[in-house]
């Protein structure tokens, strides 16, 4: 069989192949990415869609958790203050119900309890970054304002709505309890019980004062129970924060395994491609110019 005299196409194909390998290796090393366009790895490119969305979302969820956590903490500490105010009111009530108290002392205590009532109202009107924490979803207006018509002397302007904040895919954490639940619940009316205590102290009837004090006391228990909600929310947010941190790490490592390049492998591939390319070039340079004419003596 006659040998193919023209090996230029073969040499060129070889050179082209080694050049392509060299370019690919160089690109991988310089970009640190194995996949820069869908055709490099269609499946990895497809998986990157979800990964990109989740990575950015997890960042935002983390910010949400941090923001909500400090809001929940603010609400919790406001309720903490309410609890201690109520505790103080109960002991004042017990003191006022003591038979040895004279009317002017009772008046003085009534004034103190009235002060506690105002401070509890102002705690109920706590705002965080411009929105009221205990106004339900009507959080742009002051929840409790003085009212001559209301029994407790204060009317509720909020609503009974609750908000939940996204802290994960399809995971929403409820972050508020409306003031109508905590402060002016029909069965455990904090503001109403304080207001009754003030009236009882002003009236000076020890039995009435006792009854009013025990109502405040049960309101105290009720607020303490409500406070548990915020404690739970805090726990939930904290554990979600931990989860999101792990998620960030695992998404980053997934991204790296999908489109990233292993530098050691890439560097080795680059060296190999370089060697192959140089070898192909050297072979081409040696073989191409040689013909029989090189060995024939030119005609005289």
């Amino acid at each position: 069989m006659r040998v193919n005299p023209n090996f230029v196409p073969d040499v060129l194909a070889g050179l082209q192949q080694s050049q392509t390998a060299l370019n690919t290796a160089l690109q991988e090393v310089s970009t640190g990415k194995r996949v820069t366009q869908p055709s490099d790895d269609p499946a990895a490119s497809a998986n990157m869609v979800q990964n990109t969305i989740e990575t950015n979302d997890v960042d935002q969820y983390t910010q949400n958790v941090t923001g909500q956590l400090s809001m929940v903490q603010t609400a919790d500490s406001a309720l903490g203050s309410v609890v201690s105010s109520l505790t103080q009111a109960v002991s004042l009530g017990v003191e006022g119900a003591n038979g040895t108290m004279n009317a002017s002392n009772q008046q003085a205590i009534a004034t103190q309890v009235q002060g506690i009532l105002s401070s509890v109202v102002s705690l109920a009107n706590t705002s965080y970054q411009g929105s009221y924490l205990f106004g339900g979803t009507a959080n742009t207006q002051v929840p409790y304002t003085a009212s001559a018509t209301a029994a407790s002397g204060y009317q509720y302007n909020g609503n009974s709505g609750v908000n939940s904040v996204a802290v994960g895919d399809n995971l929403n954490v409820q972050v508020n309890v409306p003031g109508s639940e905590i402060f002016s619940n029909s069965s455990n009316d904090v503001l109403g019980s304080l207001s009754s205590l003030v009236s009882a102290l002003q009236g000076g009837n020890p039995t009435a004062i006792q009854t009013a004090t025990s109502t405040v006391s049960s309101a105290l228990n009720y607020v303490s129970q409500q406070r548990v909600f915020y404690g739970n929310a805090e726990t939930q947010l904290n554990s979600q924060e931990t989860y999101l941190q792990q998620e960030t790490v695992s998404l980053a490592s997934q991204q790296n395994s999908l489109v990233g390049v292993d530098m050691a492998t890439a560097a080795t591939a680059l060296t190999q491609a370089q060697t192959a390319n140089s070898a192909a070039l050297a072979a081409a340079a040696k073989v191409l110019p040689t013909t029989l004419l090189d060995y024939l003596v030119p005609p005289q």
């Binding site: 339900g136 979803t137 609503n159 709505g161 908000n163 939940s164 929403n172």
Partner: peptide, 11 residues
């Protein structure tokens, strides 16, 4: 719920 402070529909 129609109130300005609600985020209920974001979900």
């Amino acid at each position: 719920d129609g109130s300005a402070g609600s985020n209920g529909n974001v979900a």
